[in-house]
Design a protein around this nucleic acid. Structure first.
Lengths: 340, 340
DNA sequence: CTGAAAGCGCTTACAG
DNA sequence: CTGAAAGCGCTTACAG
């Protein structure tokens, strides 16, 4: 019942510990006969590899880390799971960290990555103030991938999409429909760069169309149904004339919550007010009406990032690995021209 | 830039490595003056603790593992995140494994837990055939907690609820409304014990009411909106008379997908058909109509399980830790008496 | 193709 | 309260 070590196996198979280690990790280096003998001994005695010892001598743990600001959004989970699926085929487990928009917490979690010498980090957003610390980690030799955003003109690894132009396109679509008062509700743009870029996309669409910016039509809330509901209520309480005729939510959760608020008030979407989202979660198409939104390739992001890291580790490809994926406007039924 | 070890710190602070180690983990053992000197040196030189070495010498990694069959269900994520929140306050990161209803994969992931000597495991469901292997892990000294289910009469740790009686109650509610043809759609009851218990609850409600069991009204599908949609379509294609007048879905995702199928066919819920769910995901209340479902205390499960493990580790409480939480029927608008 | 041996950076029982 | 030293179980450069 007490645990066997490679030393025990070595003795039992009449080889050295080095040979046992090779049987486990570089079988091609061994004579088939030797290999077989060692492997048989391992099986027979149900030897369990001690990864703690292995990690220490390699000075690197084959564990990965992913950092997510919140997981209320099912969409982020898709990236997490696609990533896990990709890397677990290579035997890499992944530690999932919820930073919860908390810079202090995020930093603690980032520090653990160094203490544990993780093989790679994936960041779906990060707190701006921690960037220097992230740089330090990268210099320390842990590859970091930024997800859900692009950082062109830098040496950072990233797999994401152009948040600004995606938001620009949606805002333009709304303005093109004839809306003058288009509101924007972001999922924490003050803290998350990629959401700030969406805000910028919205602003530049306004500018390009010559529409005025109205600060009272720009809001921010964590991406939950309930917050969408609340924000929408507050819009609906504005007096007609200053009340937005279209609202662009930078998250489907918010948008879907908002649709419920409209329903509650007996307001027809899109006849009386247009609602657009961002993400394309599975529920978007089940909305009533089906939600016009921005398609985000969340699974592809996870897969690609996982693959890039595996290549970086196994084939020693130095990078930087950078990829900007396509998003697209999903025009469905929740947006229409404003009433005259 | 090269990494410092406690040996370096010891030399710089003119103490032994044992003292540095104590400063880090058992500061109360040191004279305040010594402690201060060591801590200052650590700060000054930005020493980073090497958890790989620490884990090896303690022969135990302060990492936890959680095993989830699928994460399409937002509800399971709630448990995962509540758990993480609870344990991360104690400095324990958690590896999240998606077993994806795949016994082979689950076993590989379980083996990694042993290789890495994790400090604790949480299983939200597991493949039946892997139970002997889980037993082996427990005997090997890694505490395991079964979540989302109860295992009364055993020595296993669990934090869950009574799936059978919860399902029994919902099925009884439907039958009590006057439905004769109540269908049951499970999220993989053939593979997941807790879902099988829900099926049993449904069956015993039928029996208790003297309602016949109709095999064609019992279905199984992974818990996604799309599957709910499809299964419902197939029910709606049955000829009236044999078609169910109420459907009990063992997952809100399925139920909400089914509501969309009804809408698509122009069928009124609950006037023409009743639909019930299980989970109470946030979307349930935003359904049209609001979904009648079973409340599952997913966050409490995660919190409690995390707390139990921390107590087991830190205060050495041996357990078994067992807790059956309450569920409740959430009667909303999606169920009504059948049409005559 | 295989082995002897140093080394990875901590922890902790023991001694003082 | 503190230190010397053995030990955790691997990996790998080097030698043969």
């Amino acid at each position: 019942m007490s645990k066997l070590t490679i030393g025990d196996i070595a003795r039992l198979a009449d080889v050295s510990t080095a040979t046992v280690s090779r049987a486990l990790h570089s079988p091609h280096l061994l004579r088939p006969e030797t290999l077989r003998r060692v492997l048989d001994t391992i099986d027979e005695h149900k030897y369990i590899y001690n990864a703690l010892a292995g990690d220490l001598s390699k000075q690197k743990s084959s564990v990965l880390g992913i950092y997510v600001p919140t997981v209320e959004s099912a969409k982020l989970s898709e990236t997490v799971f696609a990533l896990q699926e990709t890397v677990q085929a290579h035997g890499y487990p992944v530690i999932v960290n919820n930073t919860n928009f908390n810079a202090e917490l995020e930093k603690t979690q980032l520090r653990q990555a160094r203490e544990r010498s993780l093989s790679g980090l994936f960041l779906i957003g990060y707190m701006r103030e921690n960037l220097p610390y992230i740089d330090e980690i990268i210099r320390g030799g842990i590859p970091c991938f930024f997800l859900w955003d692009t950082l062109p003109g830098t040496d950072y690894n990233y797999v994401g999409f152009d948040n600004q132009s995606a938001a620009y396109n949606m805002a333009s679509h709304l303005l093109g429909l004839g809306h003058q008062l288009v509101a924007f509700v972001g999922a924490m743009q003050s803290q998350i760069d990629r959401v700030r870029k969406r805000l910028n996309g919205y602003l530049s669409a306004l500018e390009q169309r010559g529409a005025p910016v109205r600060p009272e039509l720009i809001r921010e809330a964590p991406p939950t149904l309930e917050n969408g509901y609340r924000v929408m209520e507050s819009f609906l309480n504005m007096k007609p004339g200053s009340r937005p005729t279209a609202v662009f939510f930078a998250s489907d959760m918010l948008a879907l919550g908002a649709m419920a608020a409209c329903r509650q008030r007996g307001l027809q979407v899109p006849e009386e007010i247009s609602i657009a989202g961002f993400d394309n979660i599975e529920f978007a198409i089940y909305g009533q009406p089906a939600l016009t939104t921005v398609y985000v390739p969340s699974r592809e992001i996870g897969q690609l990032a996982g693959r890039f890291l595996m290549e970086a580790i196994q084939r020693g490809e130095p990078g930087p690995h950078q990829r900007c994926l396509e998003t697209s406007l999903l025009i469905r039924e929740s947006c229409a021209p404003p009433r005259r």
